[in-house]
């Protein structure tokens, strides 16, 4: 796996680099890494988009303001559709999730930039946080009735233990699938991009015939880049929608 001079290593791009050390607590070392840098860039960009987009306060929005307003009302409509009126309290959270994932996904598509969401620990932390939030909100709103989520209506009593078991397992699988989906999509997409880009480099190294042969992977790389833009937006959307759907369970456990 070590990057030798004649091979492109598709895994290399996911390496965490410590930009400077902060300290060490009980064997855990904390550092400001490239992943942290890009997280902060994503935060700054998404905040700037909204802040600068709402600055003109024009009645007829310009292009930039339109983008910011679309961004806002897209998530707003999503939350209202899935969660209803009482979901208003969760709108900032869902918006932040969407903005964070979307901007880190898109930043990762720029060459030489680091993809924060291709780190399992990031997506896993976000997913765990969402599920913990669902549990906390559900228990705070409905008390022990919240566990009625695992007891569907109209199931014969002798089937109930199995159904409940399946429901509990599917509930526990949610953070796993939520985090792995985003992580896997971003990771796989970037590996595929890198592999095809590597074909171009290796074919071009063969001389003139290789130059002609490299056109194929070049087109492939362009096409996959376009696909990755779609995937980046789609996965951010899916992440936000699923967070909404899971939160709906906390608000209305009896479905």
């Amino acid at each position: 796996m070590a990057g030798t001079a004649d091979r492109v290593d598709p895994i290399h791009q996911f390496h965490i680099v410590d930009l400077f050390q902060i300290g060490q607590i009980g064997g855990m070392k904390f550092a400001f890494t490239n992943s942290a840098l890009f997280m902060l860039i994503a935060v700054a960009l998404s905040f700037l988009l909204l802040y600068a987009g709402s600055a003109p306060r024009a009645l007829v929005p310009g292009r930039f303001q339109s983008v910011a307003e679309e961004f806002y009302s897209f998530v707003h409509n999503l939350v209202r559709q899935v969660l209803g009126e009482e979901g208003k309290a969760f709108f900032p959270f869902i918006f932040c999730l969407f903005a964070f994932v979307l901007f880190t996904n898109f930043l990762g598509l720029i060459p030489y930039f680091f993809t924060v969401t291709s780190q399992l620990v990031i997506t896993g932390t976000l997913a765990l946080f969402i599920i913990l939030m669902v549990l906390v909100v559900g228990l705070a709103k409905h008390g022990l009735k919240f566990f009625g989520l695992f007891v569907p209506h109209g199931v014969p009593i002798f089937l109930l233990p199995f159904i409940s078991l399946i429901e509990i397992i599917s509930f526990l699988a949610r953070p796993v699938s939520l985090s792995l989906r985003l992580f896997g999509n971003m990771l796989a997409g970037h590996i595929v991009l890198k592999v095809f880009a590597g074909f171009i480099v290796s074919l071009a190294g063969l001389g003139f015939g290789g130059w002609i042969g490299a056109i194929g992977p070049l087109f492939m790389t362009v096409a996959i880049t376009a696909l990755e833009f779609l995937v980046a937006a789609l996965q951010a959307f899916v992440f936000a929608v699923l967070a909404c759907v899971y939160l709906k369970d906390a608000l209305h456990p009896h479905h």
């Binding site: 792995l180 989906r181 992580f183």
Partner: peptide, 17 residues
């Protein structure tokens, strides 16, 4: 449809993982 596609795709991602 998108949610369904994402759920189905997630299972494929499991095998990738």
């Amino acid at each position: 449809a998108l949610i369904g596609a994402a759920l189905a795709e997630g299972l494929g991602i499991f095998s990738l993982v």
